[in-house]
Amino acid sequence: MDSFTQRRRRDLILAAALAAIAACVPLFVKDVYVQNIMVLTLMYAALSQAWNILGGYCGQISLGHALYFGLGAYTTALLFTKFGVLPWFGMLGGGIISALIALALGYPTFRLRGHYFVIATIVIAEIGFLLFHNWDYAGAALGIDIPVRGDSWAKFQFTRSKLPFYYFALVFCCVAWFITWWLEDSKWGFWWRAVKDNPDAAESLGVVVFNSKMGAAAVSAFLTAIGGAFYAQFVSYIDPESVMTFQFSLLMALPAVLGGIGTLWGPVLGAVILIPMTELTRSFIGGSGRGVDLILYGAVIVVISLARPDGLIGLFSRRPASKGVPQ
């Protein structure tokens, strides 16, 4: 009991310390390009944390989270450009719409097991992409240009500095982390891990497997949509290509997989390594680099899954006594 509480407290302190350090970094890093990478890193850390709730804790591997990301981005952009609704409400609305859609999609798909579920998520996200690609009201393939109305927190637009976006991303990342931390020691957290490890046994212990999956999907989709809404404001121009492609689904899943799937710190660790690597390879290799970053991911994932199947977090194992070979 004591070691457990201690570990939870240590995680919390470590997170607070890291957040404080991250908050100070812009004081020393003035380069806009580097700041841009930092914003994306924090955003993907948060998104991967959200993905990890469904894919890592609950074990329902989704490769279609771009759908929720896109829904968040589009809801915010559409509400703002068509009705003048402030992005903050769009963000919330996008989150709620995504959660509801996740529940609607979960209703049939959570009866599928294993690979079938993964395939279903890819297909559904692809359908979403095609719908937006052809939906004239939402700009179809041209997308939506979010008009600049001057820098303000109310409109969540900043043209002169990236710092406000950086701090929002930092808060978003902290919130996603904290929600995960909190869920980890809740009924839901335990149900999800049980469902992942063995659904039959979970059911026999009174866990309603279907409902558990639905809960995880809703939370995960909600947070992912918040990220999408943020991204729309950050880049101020969205089209289906830039927010709903399969690549985004991958980018949300990979940090968690790389860092340690179903762990509290995995997504953060994975994002901190993966996202800068992606951005740097892209800029070094230049315009023709599209795809090379993905090849690099592939290589990293292969190496990690061979050497550290538990993810990089395994290098900082918290449980040296019981990990590895039993004595």
């Binding site: 149900w191 049980a194 490890d197």
Partner: peptide, 13 residues
């Protein structure tokens, strides 16, 4: 068993 969970966590479920 819930293999990736600790013994106590298994029982907590």
């Amino acid at each position: 068993s819930f293999e990736t969970m600790t013994v106590i966590d298994n029982v907590i479920v």
